Computed example of a mutant assay.
Amino acid sequence: MESEKRNMRRLRAAMIAAVLGAAAIAAPIIVAPSASAHGWITSPPSRQDNCATGAVSFSCGGVQYEPQSVEAPKGSMQCSGGSGFTVLDDNSKAWPRKSVGSTVTFQWKLTAAHNTSTWEYFVDGKLHQTFSQGGAQPPSNISHTLTNLPAGNHTVLARWNVSNTVNAFYNCVDISVGGDPTGNPTGGDPTGGNPTGGDPTGTTGGTTGNGTCTDPAWSAGSVYTGGARVSYNNTKYEAKWWTTGENPGTSGQWGVWKNLGAC
């Protein structure tokens, strides 16, 4: 009888040891962090985009392989946000400078659409425009149109503020602002599409082009909800969801605006 008890105790001890050993092996798998990816500005090219495309004459380090990962706590005014990609903060580097007009659309490429509170754009350290996302997830190809940019050479700091974490994503874009809002030094239509126009939105009084549109003209400063219709460059568009500052002409198939055809 005593022998059977000893055997039972040995069996229980062996089972406990096996369970603990399995847990020790599994634990690193459970807690191991996963890699994440996020987004960056591709047009006009941000500093990290210039690094990723090889447009610079110097080494950028790791950011050239992950331009989407310039992430740091909110509130920084550094191009790197205070992250490890400090090369982005070095203004002595020969960063390419894009020639643009006083109105220019900043195009983002998102590899993970985080819930977003706001998008902030600073020109030489001064807040120029803010676009609200209301805590929603943005589309993967979101863009914002900045207006009334001052003439001259500037560095624009774009801050993408995630709503459900303490972090933001940072991009610096080096631009040279000329007189034409499209960035076209030859002048002409401020929209780059209508050589006879003079209205920076491409619309005048709710009509565009030949004046046949009946929907209100799109305005970069207005807020639109799903179902709202606008006219832009003699074309009708309908908003798929809440939006502001997103140019219908650059929305694309997967963007916020649905192309309803010519007016």
Rank of each mutant, 00 (worst) to 15 (best):
118 T>C: 02
20 L>M: 14
156 V>C: 02
41 I>Q: 02
203 T>S: 14
24 A>M: 14
229 R>H: 09
188 G>W: 07
120 E>I: 06
114 H>T: 10
218 W>P: 02
105 T>V: 08
21 G>A: 13
87 V>Q: 05
46 S>T: 04
177 V>R: 00
70 V>P: 03
60 C>K: 05
125 G>Q: 10
27 A>H: 09
251 S>R: 04
17 A>S: 15
201 T>G: 07
65 Y>Q: 09
195 P>Y: 07
106 F>T: 02
77 M>Y: 11
15 M>D: 06
98 K>Q: 11
146 L>W: 03
90 D>I: 06
200 P>Y: 07
43 S>P: 01
94 A>C: 02
169 F>N: 04
128 H>Y: 03
153 N>D: 15
104 V>S: 12
217 A>D: 10
72 A>R: 09
140 S>I: 08
163 S>I: 09
176 S>P: 00
241 W>E: 11
43 S>V: 01
33 P>W: 08
97 R>C: 01
172 C>Q: 02
22 A>K: 02
155 T>E: 08
116 T>I: 11
215 D>I: 01
63 V>H: 05
8 M>Q: 15
144 H>C: 05
222 S>T: 14
183 G>H: 04
137 Q>C: 04
52 A>T: 02
234 N>M: 04
206 G>V: 07
222 S>D: 14
206 G>E: 10
189 D>P: 13
134 G>A: 10
245 G>H: 07
80 S>I: 04
54 G>R: 08
118 T>Q: 14
165 T>P: 06
65 Y>D: 12
250 T>H: 04
228 A>H: 14
225 T>L: 12
7 N>V: 11
223 V>R: 09
119 W>D: 07
211 G>C: 15
224 Y>W: 10
107 Q>Y: 03
232 Y>A: 13
254 W>T: 15
82 G>H: 08
159 R>T: 15
58 F>I: 10
214 T>R: 07
154 H>Q: 05
127 L>C: 04
178 G>H: 05
234 N>V: 01
88 L>F: 05
184 N>L: 10
87 V>A: 11
178 G>V: 04
14 A>T: 09
101 G>W: 00
37 A>L: 08
69 S>L: 09
